[in-house]
Design a protein around this nucleic acid. Structure first.
Length: 329
DNA sequence: AAAATAAGCAACCGCTCTTTG
DNA sequence: ACAAAGAGCGGTTGCTTATTT
């Protein structure tokens, strides 16, 4: 199937940036007659453009309900959340941001959000922690940034950043502490000194005001941090049927993630002497497209999966709709 | 001050999906 | 049921502006 581009054979048609005169013609025509058939529109409106170009110009720029200007923190958080569930479905994402176009959101993602997530150590495609060596090489830089302090900022984005950093460091430390994965300390630029610094700093945060602040920020989802919890406790929290409940405006189904057998059979079980808590429940590689299915299929996996699961839950509104609003307020 | 490089964004391209006859 | 037209989507390009060297 498919079809040839609407402009085929019409090499005379103008391309490139629109002039104010062209904009005026298009706006005045659409306001008078509606767009009707986009293919027929250019001729009727007196434009030397293809219909597709007219449609794009109208929907992305000239439409009266377009909201222009910087994205707010709330919009940014929403985009991240939606992207973690929907992936690059920009038009779907755009339906939840009134006045924003899919193109604008896509551009914003590619130029701003993606970069921020990368800096946080989050893979912007999978929303999983980055495990590539470049990230580990930059770990010290991440750790020494001014934001990584025992007190939390009021800036919502920085709150998220701090939480993500904290979780990343916690899980890295746990991975390093796990005998099943002894290679990291030996083969990456992350040296013993950095390792000790990480451990000391995380321990200093554990049980401090900072932790109270973090759990306070998380509201009803403090278990995402899980520092002072037993393994069974960390498994008991519910996960909302994220997308269905999000789109319908309800927080509905709660899944029971208890599964002691799968945990005990994991090759990555944390040794008893490990002072850090167990990672959250273990799941196989999860699907961005269908997070619900991925939750219900939870059986076993790796520490990296665990972290992603925790992150996904963080991004995915754990037990109530108030979670993200708490974070943002 | 000029050149080089990076970043941001509007617009285009080619494909798929939906509608229509 | 089928093919073509129409519309929409996501990825990419290339121009403009800002920043760095």
């Amino acid at each position: 199937m498919g079809r040839s581009p609407c402009c085929d054979g019409n090499t005379e048609l103008k391309k490139g940036p629109w002039t104010p005169d062209e904009d005026e013609k298009l706006v005045s025509y659409v306001q008078k007659h509606g767009h009707g058939s986009w293919r027929a529109l250019p001729k009727l409106a007196g434009l030397n453009r293809c219909g597709k170009s007219c449609r794009l110009r109208w929907t992305n720029y000239l439409r009266p309900d377009i909201k222009r200007g910087c994205f707010s923190e709330e919009e940014e958080q929403l985009i991240i959340k939606l992207h973690s569930i929907l992936g690059n479905k920009w038009s779907r994402i755009a339906t939840h941001l009134p006045g924003r176009t899919d193109n604008e959101i896509k551009n914003y993602w590619n130029t701003q959000v993606r970069k921020k997530l990368m800096q946080m150590g989050i893979d912007p495609i999978t929303h999983k922690p980055r495990t590539d060596l470049n990230f580990f090489a930059n770990l010290s830089q991440l750790f020494y940034t001014p934001h990584f302090t025992p007190t939390l900022t009021n800036n919502p984005w920085e709150k998220t950043t701090q939480l993500a950093k904290f979780q990343i460091l916690q899980n890295i430390l746990q991975i390093l502490n796990t005998s099943a994965l002894p290679i990291v300390e030996q083969t990456t630029p992350l040296g013993v000194q950095t390792f000790n610094h990480l451990e000391a700093s995380i321990n200093s945060l554990n049980g401090t005001t900072a932790m109270n602040n973090i759990t306070g920020v998380l509201g009803e989802a403090p278990n995402y941090i899980g520092l002072s919890q037993t393994r069974s406790e960390t498994q008991n929290y519910g996960i909302s049927d994220s997308w269905a409940s999000y789109e319908s405006g309800h927080s509905t189904k709660v899944l029971d993630t208890n599964n002691q057998n799968s945990l005990s059979s994991s090759p990555y079980n944390t040794p008893k002497e490990n002072t850090l808590p167990a990672l959250v429940s273990i799941s196989p590689e999860t699907s961005i497209v269908n997070p619900i299915e991925s939750y219900t299929n939870s059986t076993n996996g790796s520490p990296a999966d665990d972290f992603f699961e925790a992150w996904e839950k963080l991004m995915d509104d754990g037990t109530s709709d108030s979670f993200w609003s708490d974070l943002l307020n």
